[in-house]
Every structure is written in C-alpha cells, then in structure tokens.
Simulated assay, not measured.
Amino acid sequence: MTITTLRHSSGSSCKIHSFGATVISFATDREHLFLSNDAILDGSKAIRGGIPLVFPVFGPSTAPSTMPQHGFARVNHWDLIESTETTASYTLRLADVTAGRGEHNPWSIEEVAKNGIDVLLKYEVSLGADYLLTTLTVQNTGKTAFDMEALLHSYFAVPEKATHDNSRTFITGLDRYSIVDKVTQESGHAQPEGEPVVISGETDRVYDPFEGKTSAQVQLVTPQRNLDITAEGSNAISCVVWNPGKEKAKAMPDMHDGAHEEFVCVEPGILTDRMIRLEPGDEAFLKQTIKAIVNK
C-alpha cells in the first residue's frame, strides 16, 4: 500500500491511498475532507472517509448476488501509472480485482469467464490552489455489455462539530430534484425550491435530477468555509446525501466517537434509473470538482 502526495505551489495538498485509489486528504489552509480517526488503512476493508470510489453497484447488491456493498472499486489496489507534483493517474483492470466480486452476479469469476465481460477503470486526480478535480472513466474492454453504477462517495469535513446545526450547515443546489429517502422509505416528492437540504439525525437520501441533467452544481455551507461541488458525467448525475447519525455511527467499528457531528457525505453519481448499460467499446465518465471558499 502506498500514499501519493500532491502539492501545489500555493500550499494546497492532496493525498491518495493506493487502496481503492482513495483520496484521503484535500487541504488548502485547512482540511476539507473527513477521515475517521479509526479508519483502517491496511487494505483489509474500505477506507472510512476521503473519497471512496463506488463501482459497479451503489448500495447493497440485489439477491442472489453476494457482491459487497458499493462494489469492488474501493476494496482493491489500484496501480499508479503517472504522477507529477499536482496530478496523479491510476488504473484498475478487472484481471487485477481480487476482492469484492462476490458470487451469483455478472462480475463473478465464473460469469466473467463465460460471458467475456471486461472493464478498465481509470482515475485521475488534479490539484489546484483552491480546488481538487477527480475524474473516473469506465471503459468496456470486453465482448459483452454490462450494467453499472458509479459514484464518488465524498466525505466532507464539517468544522466545529456543526453537522446537525441546520442554521450553519446545509446544502444548496438540489432544488426540484426528486427524493428517495432510504431512512423513511418515502419517495415521489421533490426538494422544494429555495429550501436547503439539512442533516437531522440519520440521513440517507438519493436526489435524482428532474430533467436527466448530466451536470450538477451544489454548495455545502459550513461555519468556517463553503465548498462548491460541481459534477458532470456521460449520464444523468444524481446526488446522495448521507450521515449515519449518532446510533448508527456508534455501531461502526471504524468510526470514532462523535464522528457523525464532524462530516456530511455529498456524493455525485451515475445512479438515475439505478443502472446504465455500457456496450463493448463504450466509455462512461464521472467528474467532480471541489472548490474551497474560506469564510473570512
């Protein structure tokens, strides 16, 4: 396992762990990503924090598949193929996927051998004075089409333990997006125009675009700084907002005590209609730009 550090002449920095090609730090004058104090960094499980990569499924697999939650991209070692002071590029080939395939699904070893499925994942990270750009590209290099979802599971740090302070921490830019609430099991309603998204206890919602938009502009407002989060992709861009709340966080062995007050996940992804089909030779991409605006 290796950690690659990028440094900009302005003083900003970024760190990428080779396990899952997980960005574990992005800092300007302060850190903007959350990493649990109890995160496991030895490659035995997905890293709790930073920007884990979700592919080829979001959330739990559908039975009878035994693929683990969020797929295999975040639980395998990625190869660093190029780096400079401010950029890094990683690849993951299906042949190198040793964990997380599960059984009874198209990505299992048996099914891949039978159907000729193959994929090449590329991940590029670029650091600027006040921004971080991450781009995931999925190439179907096999002989058979496959269904996929992809998501950047971004954990953003919230200063002053203010995640659940709705007057100081909130999200804008999701007006009119339809909502699937996984906590209340409600769906079929939309985010009211002009009303920010807030975190109240356990929060797990998928916001789907109202017109199949292939871009999204979201702002996370916190006490000390705001983050402009811009995402675009080859397909409609949804956005997941997640925080486990106090009780669920306590049950997570890699989440330190009180961590639920210190972060919120704002996660752009290709999730609309819960799968897209990628034909042989085709590509899909998902790009995110995080720009830090420090409050004076």
Rank of each mutant, 00 (worst) to 15 (best):
T2N: 13
H8L: 06
G11W: 09
G11P: 06
S12R: 01
K15C: 13
I16D: 02
H17C: 14
F26L: 07
D29I: 04
E31Y: 09
H32E: 03
L33C: 03
L35G: 13
S36D: 08
S36M: 08
N37M: 08
D42I: 07
G43R: 09
S44L: 09
S44W: 10
K45V: 06
R48Q: 09
G49A: 11
F58I: 03
F58G: 02
F58P: 03
P60S: 15
S61R: 08
P64G: 07
S65W: 06
T66G: 01
V75P: 00
L80P: 01
L80G: 02
I81A: 02
T84I: 04
E85N: 06
T86C: 06
T86M: 04
T87W: 08
T87R: 14
Y90T: 00
L92W: 03
D96T: 02
D96P: 05
V97R: 02
T98I: 08
G100A: 05
G100N: 02
R101I: 03
G102K: 07
H104M: 12
H104E: 13
N105V: 01
P106C: 08
W107E: 04
S108E: 09
E110R: 15
G116A: 05
I117M: 07
V119H: 08
L121T: 10
E124H: 15
V125H: 07
L127D: 07
D130W: 09
Y131A: 14
L132M: 07
L132W: 04
T135N: 15
T137I: 11
T137Q: 11
V138T: 15
Q139T: 12
N140F: 06
T141A: 05
K143Q: 13
M148A: 04
E149Q: 15
H153T: 05
H153S: 03
S154G: 05
F156G: 05
V158N: 09
A162H: 05
H164K: 10
R168P: 00
T169G: 09
F170L: 07
T172V: 13
L174W: 03
S178M: 12
I179Q: 14
D181V: 04
D181C: 08
K182Q: 12
V183T: 02
T184C: 02
E186T: 13
E186I: 02
E195N: 06
S200W: 02
D204C: 03
D204N: 12
V206E: 05
V206R: 04
P209G: 12
S215M: 10
S215N: 13
Q217H: 14
V218C: 04
Q219Y: 07
V221R: 13
V221H: 15
T222F: 01
P223Y: 11
P223I: 12
Q224K: 14
R225V: 07
L227T: 01
L227C: 01
G233A: 08
I237E: 00
W242R: 12
K246R: 15
K250C: 01
M252L: 15
G258R: 10
A259W: 08
H260K: 06
E261S: 12
E262S: 14
F263H: 08
V266F: 09
E267F: 00
R274D: 12
M275A: 13
D282S: 12
D282R: 10
E283R: 11
A284V: 02
Q288G: 06
I293Y: 03
V294T: 12
